[in-house]
Structure formats: structure tokens, C-alpha cells
């Protein structure tokens, strides 16, 4: 393995589902990379393809009517087309995943501790007591109070925040180099969300893990991620360092999305700037720029699919920077 190569390198990943005799692209030519100890945020609205992208990488889409093309290299190993047997060695040990709803991710009939022990013992030759010791240690690290007792409790006996911590503990149990977190805080209250985000941010220091964070919440991204990829209707709209994107979004979709979030500080607008309409269904996706029908800046050149071009430190799928009229920097109310 070369030292310079990113941990995960995804190139032109497409996922199509067959419906009525033809393949409908849900995710179209998505490329990105995740470096060691990096937190990459994938943002998009429902149906943008962010979860499907993660599921495809994890080999969790295993249906005959799905076509996955392109490449996803994890530590140099190609994941697209990898047999399920090989995936089983990878999943849980090298790449782990956590989901939005920790209640459905745990089986209700075994204790939390039993389930984490099992995961550890599936990948490592460890005694039951050895596995339990690590489970308790992990739960404690995740901020679970009284970890020994909590390990003996069933999922339904824990609060949402504790269940999510237990799930992160399970995901980290084999020291994965990469954690994929799909909307890990969406079901949680804000005060608990803040705790979990803090936990995710510290993973790279404490566990040396990279995180692929999937979310619809731009606030969560700003709070946690180094780099951001914005998906719209299955395609990359923009990607780059969070710093740059939040200061000066280059794609009108990113800008409009940020504008439509009501501000918590500064003056209250009489009306929120909103994006008219809703994202197109995959079948109705325009052949040109998918955002054009809702875009303030749409013009003739938008009927062609804009390639992803580099603009400053960002990559953007929009013709505006090429035409010499990039979007202005974002105006954010100053807070004392």
C-alpha cells in the first residue's frame, strides 16, 4: 500500500435499479475519496442517493436487479463486484457502519453486551470474558454510564442516545479504519446530538478512524466534517473542503440549500428564501443539469450536463464559474 493513497477512493460509481425492463440510475458517476483520519460529509435531500452510495460501497445492495458500475477501492482493494464472502471479512472489522435508527440495528432479543461480544468474537479469537471486557471498555469510552450494567440490558431498556452510543461502540469494537455513519443523529434530540457529534469528531484521535458521515443537515456537516460532498438527484453537485464550501458555495443548489435554513441568530427574514418545486424523480431527471428547473441562474448552457470542474479548492458541476460569473461569498450574520 502506498502511503499517499487515500483510504477509500471511489471513481464513477453508478447504481441502477431495474424497473419495467430498464435500468434507472439512482446514483450517477459519483467520485470522491476519503483520506486517513478524515471526516467526509455526504449531504443531500431525501432521494439524492447518499445512502445508496454508502450501501453500494459496503456491498449491502445485493439484488439481481441492481447494476453497480465504476470503482470503489478500499486500501487498494476493489469493492465493486467483490463476492459477499470477501465482504464478510471486511465488514465489521475494517469498515463498520452505523445507522439512523439504533432500535432496528440491534436485535431486540439479546442484550447489548451479548451483541457486541458476538461481533468481536466473529472477527477475533477472543474468549467470552475477554470479549466482554472489551465491550465494557468500549461502552465506557463512548460515555455510557455504568457500562457493566448497561451491557446486560436489552435495546428497549436504553434511551435513544444510549442506544446510539452502544451502536457506535459495536461499530468500533474491531477497530475499523473506516466508519460509515448514515444519519447517526437524525433521530436524536439536539442536546444528545451534540454529544454524539463530539464523539464522532474524536474518533480519529482516539481510534484513528476515518468517518464517512451521511446527513441531510448542513449544520451537522459544518460542525463535524473536514470535507463535504453535496449530492443532488444522484449526482455530485459540489465537493471540497467544508471551510471553502460554507464560505462560498460554488453550486447554486448548495447556496440555495444553505439559504433556506432559518437562521438562529441575526435578523429574522420576513420570508425564508426557498427553492421552488422538489427534486426530480430518477425517471424524470433532466439530461442536462438536474437542478436547472429549480435554479435562479438557469440559462441555455444548462441543457448540457455540466462536467465536474475544479474551482479554487472545490469541484463543482456548474457552468457559472466557467462562464466567469461565480456565485458571491455567503453572507452570514455575525454572532458576538
Amino acid at each position: 500500500m502506498r502511503a499517499e493513497a487515500p483510504l477509500l477512493e471511489v471513481h464513477d460509481l453508478s447504481v441502477s435499479f431495474r424497473s419495467r425492463g430498464r435500468y434507472i440510475p439512482i446514483v450517477e458517476k459519483v467520485s470522491f475519496s476519503v483520506g486517513s483520519r478524515e471526516i467526509l460529509g455526504i449531504v443531500g435531500e431525501s432521494g439524492s442517493g447518499k445512502s445508496v452510495t454508502a450501501m453500494a460501497i459496503m456491498g449491502l445492495i445485493d439484488a439481481p436487479d441492481v447494476k453497480i458500475t465504476g470503482s470503489a477501492r478500499f486500501r487498494g482493494q476493489e469493492l465493486v463486484g467483490l463476492p459477499q464472502k470477501a465482504f464478510r471479512h471486511l465488514r465489521g472489522r475494517d469498515i463498520a457502519m452505523i445507522f439512523q435508527d439504533p432500535m432496528t440495528a440491534f436485535t431486540p432479543v439479546y442484550t447489548i453486551g451479548w451483541q457486541i461480544d458476538e461481533q468481536i468474537r466473529a472477527h477475533e479469537a477472543l474468549s467470552k470474558t475477554g470479549a466482554r471486557a472489551r465491550t465494557v471498555q468500549l461502552l465506557g469510552d463512548m460515555g455510557v454510564p455504568d457500562p457493566e450494567r448497561t451491557a446486560n440490558r436489552y435495546p428497549h431498556q436504553l434511551s435513544g442516545g444510549l442506544r446510539q452510543r452502544a451502536m457506535i461502540a459495536m461499530a468500533l469494537s474491531c477497530n475499523p479504519v473506516m466508519l460509515i455513519a448514515d444519519e447517526p443523529t437524525t433521530a436524536l434530540d439536539v442536546t444528545v446530538q451534540a454529544q454524539i457529534l463530539d464523539l464522532l469528531r474524536n474518533l480519529r484521535h482516539n481510534y484513528g478512524s476515518s468517518v464517512l458521515l451521511i446527513t441531510h443537515d448542513m449544520g451537522v456537516v459544518a460542525e463535524t466534517c473536514d470535507n463535504v460532498m453535496v449530492l443532488y438527484s444522484g449526482r455530485v453537485a459540489e465537493r471540497g473542503p467544508g471551510e471553502a464550501i460554507f464560505a462560498q458555495p460554488a453550486h447554486p443548489y448548495t447556496a440555495a440549500l444553505l439559504d433556506s435554513i432559518p437562521p438562529l441568530t441575526g435578523p429574522r427574514p420576513a420570508r425564508l428564501p426557498s427553492i421552488a418545486g422538489s427534486p426530480p424523480a430518477p425517471l424524470e431527471r433532466p439530461s442536462g443539469c438536474a437542478f436547472a428547473p429549480r435554479c435562479h441562474y438557469a440559462h441555455e448552457s444548462c441543457v448540457m450536463l455540466p462536467p465536474l470542474i475544479s474551482y479554487g479548492s472545490q469541484d463543482v458541476a456548474c457552468v457559472l464559474p466557467v462562464e466567469g460569473r461565480p456565485l458571491p461569498p455567503r453572507v452570514v450574520a455575525d454572532v458576538a
Binding site: Q193, A222, E223, F246, L264
Partner: peptide
């Protein structure tokens, strides 16, 4: 204070 805002701020965490 716990609400994550879509703004990058340095040195401050939730």
C-alpha cells in the same frame, strides 16, 4: 448552544 449551525467557526465547539 447545542444546535449545529451551518457555519464554520473556529475554536468553538458545541
Amino acid at each position: 448552544a447545542a444546535v449545529p449551525e451551518p457555519v464554520i467557526r473556529h475554536g468553538t465547539s458545541l
